[in-house]
Amino acid sequence: MSTINKSLKKQRPLSPHLTIYKPQITTVLSILHRITGVGLYFGLLIFCWWLVSITYSNRDANLISWPIFQTIIWKLFLAGWSIALFYHMLNGIRHLFWDAGLGFSIRAATISGWAVVIGTLFLTALSWGLVYFR
């Protein structure tokens, strides 16, 4: 009986899920908000422990002189962190407007979504431009 139940459970039809839908700007940005949020949590942990480590070690507080900041992995991490930070901040502002009851129409959500994408690219490029080309 239990095996029959199990096989029945396995074959039970599921309602259409993520994989069946064509990705749209609104849905992609929605899951990206969550993914970047999780990433930012771990990034913030690393930042906090980095603060602890420079306080209790006698190393030079001048960041770029540290060997680790010359490595490509660290640069990729920082690049990813900055993109995630700007994206999550801008999309969070978008969420706050929704919380206030504004911008719910499909047209408004699409436009604000693309505005967030463009804003993220702009802020990321501006920040790294200021770091390297000022």
Partner: peptide, 16 residues
């Protein structure tokens, strides 16, 4: 983990 990190990094910032 969050509370431990918050307290430890606060102490570090003030110490620094």
């Amino acid at each position: 983990l969050s509370v431990f990190t918050a307290v430890f990094s606060s102490v570090a910032i003030i110490m620094f």
